[in-house]
Design a protein around this nucleic acid. Structure first.
Length: 836
RNA sequence: GCGGACGUGGCGAAACCGGUAGACGCAACAGACUUAAAAUCUGUCGCCCUUUGGGCGUGCGGGUUCAAGUCCCGCCGUCCGCACCA
């Protein structure tokens, strides 16, 4: 009667029952049990589920199922981040409508996800490209507009002159449009912005309270916000009442200044250029060249001497030249800097090139000379020198003193500066949320009246000709001004898709028809108890979502600031790569192995490459569907949880998945071969109760690999144990312990054991704390810190007894070789160390 | 350049507050069962030696300690993020 677990029957069978009974539908927000909102980052419907999704959703699923078993009201939803460029690209390439393409993909991926057997409340499924989602987003946008969190300003975009379209930075390759190959131009457009910078300080401070976020992510956000403290001060133009505003983090080096440099876009540079063709040329030169990291790094410092001078703020008789320089950025600080070459590498490079003075003002050890030699700036700490009244101060003291003096004398203020810039949300694209704004010639910029929401995307659009389909649609943009009723024009920009993902987690918790969400209901579930996703969203998505939540709080829609109480970033799923001798990538199905060497199916040699993230371009992708066909959902799930710690990368391997398949069957055989027996097996009881407690702790800590190891340990112990009542109990308990990870097998086993109800509704087994404590312990006996023997003694044996036992050991005596102990260290229940 | 993480058997990894390094799995090897194979079961599995014992061993070099994978200092390597940020 020995049988094999048949996942091909069991998977579909149980998935259907779960769905019919709505087992995983979240209870109402009024449910008195503690709430547990488990969320994985929702997918973009690209067409196929990949192994990264499988890993991500399996982890969340284990947690959600476990939380349900431990008495929580669980919300575990799923949706689709379904606006975005790939749909428009598909529309252009395949002549399909972006909506049709997207919805088809959603259907296909949903089917794949369901095969995984996820404990998801599908009744709350949402898709951001549908008006019943984005219409509410438009309402929120108008709330922000009303609260002054939205504004419009001219801003530069990458413009493809052939495709007549705006390009994202990642679509610009070597300065050319990725599709057309045309040289990209910079173009100024009026664009919408959200005032995330209003929240810069809050977003930074809020990080401290996020105890359950990875340090790494918090650090990345901190760097992105990029706060620096410094002095903003004015350098007066010689012979004029105007001045140049400068920001510096090194006011202590003010006496080492030798020039002032302004950005090419600086208003002063622009006005000077009007009558100076040479400067115009220089500014044009600065604007050429890419903005990529590599180009910037190699770009040489260039300056243009404007011929004008400014007064040093600490000494009006001291005049400094003003340059326009390519390394000064208009959008950071004030777009102007003073150069202190001795203590800033960039300034030093510039000063050496244009032969400007270099004066040391911070002592480098005992080097205090004002003359500075060499091409390496000194940026370390030291006492201030050659700086009049500041001499002898430390760098920090000098900074504080200069700021105090500037504020007292009125020529500068100490202020923080942030790297973070406002969030430009305008996209000149079709497949996104229409920005609900109307432009009237007479009344100006007006919000769309609430009663007219949602502003729906027109379905009848074409992608045959370049440009924004919304802009050239014959009727869509023509509306009446809500104010004066004269003809007016709709905004044809759509919102950045990051806006869609900035509040979806709130809509999951509460989905009324007439508003984005209900405050009370949302607050009952949120913040998300555990958010799980890829590290690639460490900055933008998570920062925008944090901002959006704070903005909602500011406009009174919600009463909490942080959307995600705990964050977990899982590692990637990787696979070895293969290349033919011609250098073409080969997929794993095109390879066979002979020993360590790989060959094509025709026998040609294959070069084995690095283990990399699965990607279509490298052809090292393993599709989940055939794995479900061959091994069933549970084996795939178990593999995803085994071995690698979840935050680390997981290498997919054929032997690995076979191993997990074997294990699933081992569990099944135990249950299948169960016989009722009598008698107690104390050791097995302990093993069981230890597993119950240990697996629970590991799942709660998201240490799935350790939980898996503990299940293995228990299964090994059960297999070795002789029949007993203890063994029968252990086998009856086992399905409960694997239920979060192997839900189909667990249901099947539960029935086989004679239970009537679903295992999904069962409580996690309780353990007896007394059984977690050993009454015997093994003690290490060391001589001079080296292990010589081990002793098994009763737990809590007194020190002197342990000492005596240790000294009596034959092995210990041999290794002491007649020497007498100088000192004996006894750590109760652990070890004895004899020092001779 | 700045910031961060990591480095343990053939491989993925465990190891709590410094207290028996290598749990658990994969691969490999030997054996049992079988006509045979698969499946399953039993066992071995860090390196070395003079093998009932002993030496060495957590990237390398030092230090603290009775005791270091774990703490401190200095290197080397790998990976990631940011970057002309004033």
């Amino acid at each position: 009667m020995a049988s094999r677990f048949n996942p091909f029957k069991a998977d579909g069978h149980w998935q259907k029952i779960w769905e019919e009974q709505g087992v995983f539908n979240a209870p109402p927000a009024s449910d008195p049990r503690p709430k547990s909102y488990i969320l994985e980052m929702f997918p973009y419907p690209s067409g196929r589920i990949h192994m990264g999704h499988v890993r991500n959703y399996t982890m969340g699923d284990v947690l959600a199922r476990y939380k349900a078993m431990t008495g929580h009201a669980v919300l575990h939803p799923m949706g689709w981040d379904s606006f975005g460029m790939p749909a428009e690209n598909a529309a252009m390439e395949k002549k399909v409508h972006p909506g049709a393409w997207t919805r088809q993909n959603i259907e296909a991926m949903k089917k794949q996800l369901k095969r995984l057997g996820l404990a998801i409340d599908w009744s709350r499924e949402l898709s951001t490209c549908e008006p019943d989602y984005y219409g509410h987003e438009q309402a929120l946008f108008l709330d922000f507009y009303k609260a002054g969190l939205v504004y419009r300003k001219e801003s530069e975009v990458n413009w493809d002159p052939v495709d007549m379209t705006v390009l994202a930075n990642e679509q610009v390759i070597d300065g050319r449009g990725w599709r057309s190959g045309a040289l990209v131009e910079r173009k100024k457009l009026n664009q919408w912005f959200l005032k995330i910078t209003d929240f810069a300080e809050e977003l930074l401070e809020g990080l401290e309270g996020l105890e359950h976020w990875p340090e790494k992510v918090k650090l990345m956000q901190e760097n992105w916000i990029g706060k620096s403290k410094g002095l903003r001060c004015t350098f007066n133009l010689v012979g004029s009442h105007d001045g140049i505003d400068v920001f510096t983090t090194r006011p202590d080096t003010l006496y080492g200044a030798s020039f002032v440099a302004i950005a090419a876009d600086h208003p002063l540079a622009q006005s000077l250029a009007e009558n100076a063709p040479a400067l115009q040329d220089f500014i044009a030169e600065c604007k050429r060249g890419g903005t990529t990291a590599a180009e910037l790094e190699t770009a040489e410092k260039m300056g243009f001497n404007t011929g004008i001078s400014v007064e040093h703020p600490l000494d009006s008789n001291w005049h400094l030249p003003v340059y326009v320089a390519n390394f000064v950025l208009m959008d950071y600080g004030t777009g102007a800097v003073f150069g202190c070459p001795a203590h800033d590498q960039r300034d030093l490079d510039f000063a050496r090139k244009y032969d400007l003075p270099v004066t040391r003002v911070v002592a480098d050890g005992d080097k205090e000379d004002s003359a500075f030699y060499g091409d390496v700036a000194y940026t370390g700490p030291g006492k201030i020198v050659n700086s009049h009244w500041m001499n002898g101060l430390s760098v920090d003291e000098a900074k504080a003193d200069v700021i105090a003096k500037a504020e007292h004398e009125g020529w500068g203020v100490g202020q923080p500066q942030y790297r973070l810039r406002d969030w430009g949300v305008s996209r000149q694209r079709y497949w996104g949320t229409p920005i609900p704004i109307i432009h009237c010639e007479f009344c100006g910029v007006l919000p769309v009246p609430r009663t007219q929401l949602p502003v729906k995307l027109p379905e009848d659009v074409s992608f045959d000709i370049p440009g924004n389909p919304l802009d050239r649609h014959p009727t869509w943009k023509h509306v009446k001004c809500p104010n004066c009723q004269e003809p007016a024009i709709r905004e044809t920009d759509t919102l950045d898709t990051f806006a869609d993902s900035s509040w979806y987690f709130i809509r999951f918790a509460s989905q009324p028809d007439d508003k984005p969400f209900d405050k009370e209901e949302a607050e009952a579930w949120l913040p998300v108890g555990q958010y799980i996703g890829g590290i690639e969203h460490a900055i933008l998505h998570l920062l925008y979502a944090r901002f959006w939540t704070r903005a909602l709080q500011k406009v009174g829609k919600l009463d909490f600031a942080e959307p995600f109480a705990a964050l977990f970033t899982q590692g990637m799923v990787t696979h070895e790569t293969y290349k033919s001798s011609a250098g073409a990538w080969l997929s794993p199905e095109e390879i066979k192995f002979e020993g360590d060497k790989a060959f094509t199916l025709d026998g040609a040699p294959v070069e084995r490459g690095r283990i990399e993230k699965m990607s279509k371009s490298k052809k090292n992708v393993v599709d989940p569907d055939p794995m479900f066909d061959q091994y069933g959902a549970d084996a795939v799930r178990w593999f995803m949880l085994s071995d690698s710690p979840p935050e680390r990368d997981l290498e997919w391997s054929e032997s690995g998945i076979e191993g997990t398949w074997r294990f699933v069957n081992r569990v099944w055989r135990l249950v299948d071969g169960l016989e009722n027996a009598e008698g107690e097996d104390k050791a097995l009881d302990k093993s069981l109760h230890r597993a119950i407690a240990g697996i629970a702790a590991d799942i709660e800590a998201l240490h799935f690999n350790k939980a898996v190891a503990k299940v293995h340990g228990l299964v090994n112990d059960i297999e070795k144990a002789a029949p007993s009542a203890s063994r029968t109990t252990a086998i009856r308990t086992l399905p409960l312990l694997v239920a979060p990870m192997l839900p189909h097998l667990a249901e099947e086993a539960w029935v086989a054991l004679g239970n009537k109800s679903l295992i999904a509704g069962q409580p996690w087994p309780s353990h007896d704390p007394a059984l977690l404590v050993d009454d015997e312990v093994t003690i290490a006996v060391q001589v001079m810190g080296k292990l010589r023997d081990t002793l098994t003694v009763a737990k809590g044996s007194p020190k002197d007894a342990l000492e005596a036992l240790a000294l009596a050991s034959e092995k210990v005596q041999r290794s002491m070789d007649g020497a007498s102990p100088k000192k004996i260290i006894v750590v109760p229940d652990r070890l004895v160390n004899i020092v001779i």
